[in-house]
Amino acid sequence: MAELLGAAGARLLVPPALNQVLVHFDDDLTTDAVIAAVQEDRTCWVGGTRWHGNNAMRISVCDAATTTADIEASAAAIVRCWTTVKKG
């Protein structure tokens, strides 16, 4: 997930550890809008948090049944939502 989002241009705020990914999109308002768009899209669930003064998307992969295809579909949905938010 971290590699896919990083390749799309999202800023990884910390190196991914275990099942956690923390990313930032352009600015705080955009990050919040992407989180809301992903939650509305319902492909996956992400949450918001603050990290060192920045709003961030927190992604947790919590189920052993999660497949590579699930990660790819979720990353694609996040990038799609980000693209939609940037277009306004």
Rank of each mutant, 00 (worst) to 15 (best):
D70H: 13
G6F: 07
G47R: 03
I59P: 00
E72I: 15
L29F: 14
V61F: 00
C62H: 10
K87P: 00
G6M: 07
A37N: 09
R58A: 08
V23D: 00
Q39Y: 12
T49A: 07
D26Y: 15
E40N: 12
G53Y: 14
A2R: 02
A10D: 13
V14R: 14
T67W: 01
A10E: 04
A7G: 10
V79S: 00
A65T: 09
T67F: 03
A2P: 04
T66P: 02
E3I: 11
W82H: 11
S74R: 02
T68D: 09
N19K: 10
A64F: 12
S60I: 07
I59D: 00
D41A: 07
C62N: 12
R42D: 04
Q20C: 06
I78L: 08
P16M: 11
R80C: 09
C44L: 06
I35H: 02
C44Q: 00
G53E: 10
A76H: 10
A77N: 11
R80N: 08
L13Y: 07
A2C: 09
S74L: 02
D41N: 07
E3S: 04
T43R: 14
G47M: 12
R42A: 07
D63H: 12
I71L: 15
L5I: 11
K87W: 10
R11A: 11
A64P: 07
T66L: 09
A65L: 14
T31K: 00
W45D: 01
E40C: 05
N55P: 00
T49I: 02
G48I: 04
I59S: 00
V46Q: 02
A73H: 11
V14H: 04
N19G: 13
V21I: 15
A2W: 05
Q20A: 07
R11I: 12
K87V: 10
T66D: 03
A73I: 13
T66I: 15
I78N: 06
A75E: 02
D27F: 14
T31L: 01
I35W: 06
I71W: 05
W45A: 08
A65S: 15
T67N: 13
V23I: 15
A8D: 05
C44I: 09
G88V: 13
V34M: 06
V38H: 06
L13P: 06
T84F: 10
A17H: 04
T67H: 08
T49D: 06
C81R: 07
N55M: 05
E40D: 12
L22Q: 06
A37V: 06
A36S: 12
R42E: 09
T43E: 14
R58S: 03
L13I: 10
A76C: 01
A69Q: 14
V85Q: 01
R11D: 10
D70E: 06
L29M: 05
C62M: 15
M1A: 03
G48T: 09
A73C: 14
S74M: 03
D63M: 08
P15F: 11
H52N: 14
W82F: 12
V34H: 03
R42P: 01
A8M: 12
T49G: 06
G6I: 06
N54W: 14
E72V: 12
T83L: 14
E72R: 13
K86R: 15
W45Q: 15
G88K: 13
V14G: 00
L18Y: 10
G48V: 02
Q39G: 01
W45E: 04
E40P: 03
